[in-house]
Amino acid sequence: MTDSNGMGFSNRLDLDRFFFHVRQQIYVIVKLGDFPDYYKGGDIDVFCYNKDEFAKQILNVGNWYLDKGFEIRVTDEDESHACVDFYLDGELEFRFDLYQSLPRYERIRLKQHYIYSVIENASVLHREFDGVQYPIYVPSAVDELLLRYVEYIEWYELRPDKVKHLDYILNAVASDSTRIGFLDKLHLYTELPSSDFRDASHHRISGFGRKESWTGRALSKLLRRIPKVFLRRLHRVLLVLPKRLYRPLERYYENHVSG
């Protein structure tokens, strides 16, 4: 099977099989793309309440593919992010990126509890597997716009193709109700970082939601503190120094002049 550009989908994994199996889980597929079609090396981002349980369900279905020569590599990145990668003949076939909390964006601040809003307001699409209808969950229209906006802001400098998200948003917000809904939610859940924060993010190389290291954060905090500490010291010196100079003069005056 090919897409509109004539490129071939891989589809060695039946994504319907996986999402049929996780139908009892609470989740949202962030970017549906050509679901259930995918390109070799493709991925799917899933927001869910319990990434460990979700990963277990993926493995449950994955066992079926082990007989077909697949290997499943699981990486528990951190407390809120896990990757389940399917490899065939040593090459990545498909990745499930499971997020239990929002990935960290560097060029826009998104309130952490936005993930719950995305999950709880999900829209349902109906699909079929093995003759049985089942639901998959995708972001609501407004959340779709907001997530695309975040993706655009995060990446437009490095990936000019991300302008497609802006085009999509501009088309979608043509109606007043959508525009108002989108802006309301955007204002509620996002905040632009300070300019030095944005400048720092220019230096990043790659990585959607890449975290700034603890050392980096501590160092920048320290650097920010240095001028403050210096000024505080200077202020103290300026206050104390005149007194120290004045006191001997005062004493001299008392002893020699007034006496």
């Binding site: 990963a55 277990k56 082990l66 290997e71 699981v74 990486t75 528990d76 896990a82």
Partner: peptide, 21 residues
């Protein structure tokens, strides 16, 4: 040892594993 994989308490913590035949 790993929140995804059932594993006994006495193993050290690990972040990565591969399922294969």
């Amino acid at each position: 040892p790993n929140p995804i994989l059932s594993s006994p308490y006495y193993l050290p913590k690990f972040k990565e594993f591969t399922i294969k035949r």
